[in-house]
């Protein structure tokens, strides 16, 4: 009788702990996904690139690491043209943000493997 009661209490505690672990896991997945969902990443990267171009002087070359973004969305596109940065990680039009620096920008996505640069980078050549 006593053993059965003890077993019940143990079972309840185990279920309770499992429930807590499940809840915490769901919460962790939710927070991680919220921070790296397509729309947030597009906006974040487009604004970051626009600010970099605004600040840059002609003759500058900038490398921005985009390894994680392109691993998550392999078909992604980044276009810099006519004072607009467009980042598109999905099938829609993506997200565009304007920059005010009057420069010509050449942009390429390159896999680099040199000193200090390993992985996929967005290379901006400001002319």
């Amino acid at each position: 009788m006593n053993k059965m009661k003890k077993g019940n209490i143990l079972m309840e505690n185990v279920i309770f702990i499992i429930l807590i672990i499940v809840f915490i896991s769901i919460l962790f997945v939710f927070v991680t996904r919220q921070g790296s969902n397509q729309s947030v990443l597009e906006k974040q990267l487009a604004k970051q690139i626009a600010l970099v171009i605004d600040e840059a002087e002609p003759g500058t070359q900038v490398q921005i690491r985009v390894e994680d973004e392109f691993n998550k969305y392999p078909g992604g596109k980044i276009q810099v043209d006519n004072n607009v940065v467009n980042v598109n990680f999905g099938s829609g039009a993506g997200y565009s943000y304007g920059y005010f620096n009057k420069v010509n920008v050449e942009s390429n996505i390159l896999d680099l493997n040199s000193d200090g640069f390993k992985g996929r980078y967005l290379t901006l050549i400001i002319k």
Binding site: N82, N83, V84, S96, Y97, G98, Y99, F100, N101, K102, V103
Partner: peptide, 11 residues
């Protein structure tokens, strides 16, 4: 000053 003070994003 080499600026383009026009937003061309279409927003």
């Amino acid at each position: 000053c080499g600026l383009v003070l026009e937003d061309k994003t279409g927003y």
